[in-house]
Design a protein around this nucleic acid. Structure first.
Lengths: 132, 132
DNA sequence: CTGCATCCAACTAGATACTG
DNA sequence: CAGTATCTAGTTGGATGCAG
């Protein structure tokens, strides 16, 4: 029998969360979320506002967020077709946690960059200690 | 001049954050972080506790976290070599935000799964509305 | 024990062309 | 306008063998 509970347990527990976070906190989702929290938007509006995203990736992102109940997709019967995306109540609950993380990132960024520079500098002189 | 500030601004601002989150909230980092917040650990301990990670990925994760100042790597001069990883003060500040996100995930998971089922079910009968 | 180097399979994402 | 379909280049991650 497996007696260790520290190990696999956490991984089993973490897996669905991991999966969810991957779907909801990925590269473009935060930006889309951000915009749709302001107001509902059309597909082409989102493209204009997030120029770096390709149409393919934006479609994928919107589909994924829609599937997870974070955003809503409404097809407007006009000519030509128009589609409006908007945030759902569930999606709104995601905002505060995301803000917390972003605040952390903003706050610690200086320390992070300092740590990066230090690390990278050390790699530049890997034999330094042998010289003295 | 560019009069719209809603657009590119956020993306410019968001990019470094995005980058940071990718490095720190990725697949294995949360698990490693979780363990090292308990106590310092050796490389092989981490492997044992997180069986699903390969040696390559674990090494990459540890390097990345070390570079960002989240964890510390101490080489113990024993025979054979031993390496101890531990959390840094900066790393500890990452815990609370991560907890917030995980709590959100845990809390909303039922709604998320419900949304997923609904979405998937609708795709199973794409012509349903045409039948009545 | 800890980790680097290499090869390779799988997935990702961009570019492009086409449709209701 | 809002996508789908396809092809392809680049990236990720596992498996394996070797080394300090």
């Amino acid at each position: 029998m497996t007696t260790n509970s520290t190990a696999a347990d956490r991984f089993e527990i973490g897996a669905p969360h991991r999966d969810l976070l991957d779907q909801v906190l990925d590269k473009w989702s935060l930006l889309v979320l951000n915009e749709l929290c302001e107001r509902p938007m059309r597909f082409s509006e989102l493209r204009r506002i997030i120029p770096a995203v390709t149409q393919k990736s934006l479609t994928a992102t919107l589909r994924r967020l829609e599937r997870n109940g974070i955003i809503r997709r409404v097809l407007l019967s006009t000519r030509p077709v128009a589609v409006e995306y908007s945030i759902t109540p569930l999606g709104k609950t995601l905002r505060p946690p995301v803000e917390v993380i972003l605040d952390w990132a903003a706050e610690q960024m200086p320390l992070i960059e300092q740590a990066r520079r230090r690390y990278d500098d050390e790699l530049d002189r890997p034999v330094a200690e042998q010289l003295r």
